[in-house]
Simulated assay, not measured.
Amino acid sequence: MKAKLTSLTYLTLGLLATLIIGPILPSLAQNRPNCSSPMTQADMNSCAGQSFRVADAELNRVYNQFINNLSASRRERLIDAQLAWISYRDATCELEGESVRGGSLQPLYITTCKTGLTETRTQEFVAYSQNRYPAGSSSRFSEVEQQHRSALNTLRNRNASSLLDASENAWQAYRSSACEFERSGGGNAAFNNCQIRLTEQRIQQLK
């Protein structure tokens, strides 16, 4: 089934509802919050959702534009990587919201996290389309991997939750498939750079 895919669509349920209901209820536009200065928590949540939908649509656009120019084998690798990225994004942002679980801030934390990860992924696709493979700041993968394990263990001692394990497992799968894709276009140097870059990003998330 996966081999038959040529593109992925990230149309969220919120966006789908907007497309269906929008023409029927134009008066709802009058109740939209001012996202330049949201006044209530509900407004903040709504504006965060709007920002995510914009970021999601841009990722979808750049992704579909890029994948159409790939060979069949690289297209399959990219699809694997992007499916893994979606799982990683969702699991990581659920973990992000765990610190305020049950509170009114939880949706804001989760959505803001998704927006940030989506914008980062879009930047990577822009680089791919320019035949570039973004590099990390370190020179040795072994060093950042050690830092990653340290940051993970520190967080696990404070928050030994199933969400942390799910997030970490999803990230490991994403890093593996994403870096294999980058190796398919840039060789072993691109693979090594990818491992360093994604591990550095992960360290920041865990701190």
Rank of each mutant, 00 (worst) to 15 (best):
S7A: 14
T9H: 11
Y10F: 15
L13N: 12
L13F: 09
I24W: 08
L25W: 05
L25C: 01
A29S: 12
Q30A: 14
N31Q: 13
R32F: 11
A42C: 07
D43R: 04
V54K: 11
A57N: 08
E58S: 09
N60Q: 15
N64D: 14
Q65Y: 10
R74L: 08
R77H: 07
R77I: 04
D80C: 00
Q82G: 01
Q82N: 15
W85Q: 06
D90P: 02
A91P: 04
T92P: 02
T92R: 07
V100H: 06
R101F: 08
L105I: 10
L105S: 15
Q106W: 02
L108T: 14
I110R: 12
T112K: 06
C113T: 09
K114V: 03
G116D: 06
T118F: 03
T118E: 01
E119T: 13
E119C: 00
T120Q: 13
T122I: 07
T122Q: 09
Q123V: 00
Q123I: 00
Y128G: 03
N131H: 08
P134A: 01
S138I: 02
S138Y: 11
S142L: 11
V144Y: 02
E145L: 08
Q146C: 00
N153S: 14
N153T: 10
R158T: 07
L163I: 00
L163A: 15
D165E: 15
S167K: 03
S167H: 05
E168Q: 14
N169P: 04
W171K: 06
Q172K: 13
S176D: 13
S176N: 12
S176P: 00
S176V: 06
E182K: 06
R183M: 09
G185Y: 03
G186I: 02
A190N: 01
N192Q: 14
C194P: 05
L198C: 05
E200R: 00
E200I: 01
Q204I: 09
Q205I: 01
